[in-house]
């Protein structure tokens, strides 16, 4: 008879070109202890692991789950072993491969380190490309810069309970990425009535018109499953930079790209004509409540 110990899935977390942001984001997970009880951690960049990096690089052990963080650079070496060999070896035996973060999913921030060869595991931005094309059915992309700990926890839990994770065309779990970052934003009413804002540092106003907010075009559940269980970028007045999408990082991220004052990109799936019709009309209504301050603190000084 097998003991409970034997049933644990063997998890290997390996890094390509990275900042460690996903590693640290994952450590924020409230139920990390319970979740990790399901796994035998062969290697993790921070957490105690069964093997040292040196041992892992001998390519002798097998894992069930291969978690990859960072951009894939085939020529990168860890202690003299090429990353292409490492990825090739461990993914061959793994039943599941998870690209943790946007770098591993689409190339992300560190595609720029060596743009001619760096990519994600099965995508180079939106184009099908990378070392695991032949076994792409194994790959789940958890884009996000960084990944949200709950998104990774969801995916790992589904795998542990042997449930299938349905994914979109970019291999992202639909339960996590069918939402837009816009959903649940506390500034939604300002978007509905097209009330923009000139300055940062205000509770009022939508950041889509001037500050470059990508939330209406970005697949992510940031305003549904809050960050650190507390907040989100848009809730604290920072525009969404679209970090879960293949084109992250874009340029001029703090301003909205407009053509003759008209936003170049309209909310996902909304034709420009419909959007402009609605906007033109909504903008003509000057709604006092939405144009004023939500709270006017009396200055005590």
């Amino acid at each position: 008879m097998h003991s409970k110990q034997d049933k644990k899935l063997k998890l290997l977390w390996f890094q390509g070109v990275t900042c460690n942001g996903n590693t640290h984001s994952f450590l924020n997970l409230p139920n990390i202890e319970q979740l990790l009880e399901n796994f035998e951690i062969l290697y993790h960049p921070i957490l105690p692991s069964i093997y040292s990096l040196e041992e892992i690089l001998k390519l002798e052990e097998n894992c069930d789950l291969f978690l990859f963080e960072g951009t894939y650079d085939p020529l990168m070496q860890h202690n003299g072993v090429e990353l292409s060999k490492i990825v090739d070896y461990y993914t061959k035996h793994a039943t599941h491969v998870i690209s943790v973060g946007t770098c591993a999913s689409f190339g992300g921030m560190f595609k720029a380190t060596a743009p001619e060869r760096n990519s994600g595991l099965i995508f180079n931005e939106e184009e099908s490309f990378g070392p695991l094309l032949e076994q792409k059915q194994k790959v789940i992309n958890l884009s996000g810069c960084p990944v949200h700990p709950e998104w990774l926890s969801y995916t790992l839990s589904m795998i542990v309970s042997d449930k299938e994770v349905e994914v979109d065309e970019l291999h992202r779990p639909i339960e996590l990425y069918s939402n837009l970052a816009h959903h649940g934003c506390t500034r939604n009413e300002y978007f509905e009535w097209k009330v923009d804002v000139d300055n940062f540092g205000e509770k009022e106003g939508c950041l889509f018109y001037k500050q470059g907010c990508r939330a209406p075009m970005t697949h992510a559940s940031c305003n549904k499953i809050l960050w650190n269980e507390v907040s989100s970028k848009t809730r604290v007045g920072t525009p969404c930079f679209g970090c879960t999408e293949p084109d992250f990082p874009r340029t001029d991220m703090f301003s909205t790209k407009t053509n003759m004052s008209i936003p170049q990109d309209t909310p996902l799936g909304v034709p420009k004509r419909s959007y402009l019709t609605l906007t033109g009309i909504a903008k003509t209504f000057h709604i006092k409540r939405l144009e004023g301050k939500l709270i006017d603190y009396k200055t005590t000084r």
């Binding site: 640290h24 924020n28 960084p146 650190n228 907040s231 970028k233 848009t234 604290v236 920072t238 930079f241």
Partner: peptide, 11 residues
């Protein structure tokens, strides 16, 4: 995150 929206990678 209460003030910065998230950690890591707040702007």
């Amino acid at each position: 995150a209460t003030f910065a929206g998230q950690w890591p990678h707040s702007s």
